[in-house]
Design a protein around this nucleic acid. Structure first.
Lengths: 342, 342
DNA sequence: TTGAAAGCGGTACCAC
DNA sequence: GTGGTACCGCTTTCAA
């Protein structure tokens, strides 16, 4: 097992001055060469000497010093989501991240779990990000937005179910998911519709808007329809409880929040002898593979996160021309996928 | 819709000098007060004036300037994983993050997707992190480790299936998962065991060690046993193909990589008329809820990530006393859970 | 074509 | 108790 290469106590990390000394030039020249500064002509031999010295020393510029001097950063701060790892959302962030890098931003996810919103905003502001994309409606207050903009952030953007006043917003309006599901069930002639509301607190941010959208769709419907919220924990016992009193509820359909809850509830209903879809239609959301593997095959709501312009380009534009009115970009597209369970 | 609070062009972000001016004190005093420096006595009225001035201006210290002066950061860099969002792993990171914050580190996830390993290491080094915890075995080369330590990182730690020479390691040895599964199947008297190998390239990092562990367990067994790798894409067509030629394979058991692949394959087998577990035993991994909802209930391998000492404390210790021999911390505990499918 | 020097914001030593 | 000031590493004018 090899020895860990340790930073010898006396030898400190190489700076551009060290590179300059080794190459026999000034620090200015080092900077010109390593940044390929076009406004100044440096001879080819000098460039080579500088490059070799830098490589030889393992020189890496000091980002903090650079941005201190520059007076600004190209850091886009993405406060790490405490939200459950929804694959859809992961894909969105991964894409955003690589697109931003392509636009020469440095993407930094900063964990702020357990910090108060305003405390978190101050911690973020210390990094002087040029833009902040903040998931979760709770984490950004008007005060926080003020702190960030005063600290030089050109764009403060929320990412969540609701816009926040005074900031730009990528809006993922989860109500649309509930709306889609209920409209689908109504179109199938169902009128007494249960809506599963996960008891897991983490999911409230998604669950409540989905329920609200369901209620709204029922109200907007021509035929009179009833929506019955159904609290449910993600465990078998809770599902069995609900299934046991299912017939007393008198429902002819259920929107199960997502496909995983659908699987949980459908199993419990089937074990109790409730026929799906004959007696009760079931629709989930997220259109996971598992829905296609269930019997009957699970109807679902597909969800896509998409904007006309890529989000990274929107951010870049907001950074370059700050100060406009808050923009709202609606990301979420939902559509019912009818299979055999509804 | 309110106007976005914009940074007026002329007014720049407040510095400690602005606070000093407003409070009628020196910058030194501002620093003393805001950092609660105990080595120096400042009168209470002065403290209050400084605090009020800072609050009034919305002053937030500049992290880059501070760490430039200090000569070091308390940044722990977590290069964002390109790995698939395994819930187990998410929980590990979330925990690590909040524990590190409690130890007063700033946790930064830096997206490096699409960068070459050495290029990525240089980009990380620019931030002068005091520690780097790098997921994915590929992303850290000896050169990269050198760049990071020379740039002042006190601890460079890999997080993945294999240690990397010259760095500390949190080892998640996925072979143990395959080993557990196969030993379980052997104990059930099965001898001709298929092992699903997902074709998704992202999963190779996990899939290959799981297969290797399965092979190893079969070799170590007293009874002669056969391991048959079974490439499978995560879609129904691929599963149907495999199921269609199942009987020609002559297998009496299958370890399906994880519970989701188990569900996919079990459905295809059942649709083809293969009896589970009578004709073929099935075991998955991850012990997801969905396994309990399948019929027959799915046997699985539970996986836990745990160390005697919390990982955050290990990192803290390595940072405080750097230079020891590379440490290996084995995180993964696996155990078979027998249900009805095996 | 290259170098000297100022200054970004904050901290901490040393005087007063 | 408080203030003056040097300095962290880097970029960028201005001079030579």
């Amino acid at each position: 097992m090899s020895q860990l290469p340790q930073q010898p106590a006396g030898i400190s990390v190489p700076t551009s001055a060290d590179v300059a000394r080794l190459a026999g030039v000034s620090r200015a020249t080092v900077s010109y060469v390593l940044n390929n500064n076009a406004t100044v002509r440096i001879s080819e031999p000098t460039r080579r000497r500088v490059r070799e010295a830098a490589a030889g020393l393992g020189y890496v510029p000091h980002a903090a010093a650079r941005s201190l001097r520059a007076g600004h950063t190209r850091t886009v701060l993405l406060p790490a989501a405490q939200a459950p790892a929804v694959p859809l959302y992961q894909r969105f962030l991964t894409r955003l991240e690589s697109d931003l890098r392509r636009l020469d931003y440095t993407v930094v996810q900063y964990g702020s779990i357990g910090l108060e919103p305003d405390e978190a905003a101050r911690a973020w502001a210390e990094l002087r990000p040029v833009a902040v994309v903040s998931p979760g409606a709770t984490a950004l207050t008007p005060y926080g937005i003020g702190v960030l903009t005063r600290s030089g952030a050109k764009a403060v953007i929320t990412l969540g179910p609701q816009p926040v006043d005074g900031a730009h917003a990528f809006v993922m309006d989860q109500r649309e998911v509930g709306g889609c599901a209920v409209r689908h069930l109504l179109s199938r002639g169902r009128r007494r519709i249960g809506v599963v509301v996960p008891r897991e607190p983490d999911l409230a941010l998604f669950a409540e808007p989905r329920l609200a959208g369901a209620v709204r769709a029922a109200e907007d419907s021509a035929a009179p329809a009833l929506i019955q919220p159904l609290p449910l924990r993600y465990d078998e016992e809770s599902a069995e409880d609900l299934a046991a009193r299912w017939r007393t509820l008198g429902l002819d359909a259920v929107f199960t929040y997502d496909d995983e809850y659908a699987m949980l509830l459908m199993r419990a209903l089937q074990d109790t002898g409730v026929e799906v879809p004959a007696e009760t239609a079931v629709i989930g959301a997220d259109d996971l593979m598992l829905g296609r593997l269930l019997r009957p095959r699970l109807s679902s709501v597909t969800i896509e996160l998409a904007t006309a312009q890529p989000p990274a380009e929107i951010i870049d534009r907001l950074v370059r021309s700050p100060g406009g009115a808050p923009e709202r970009h609606y990301l979420l597209r939902a559509a019912a996928v009818a299979r055999d369970s509804s």
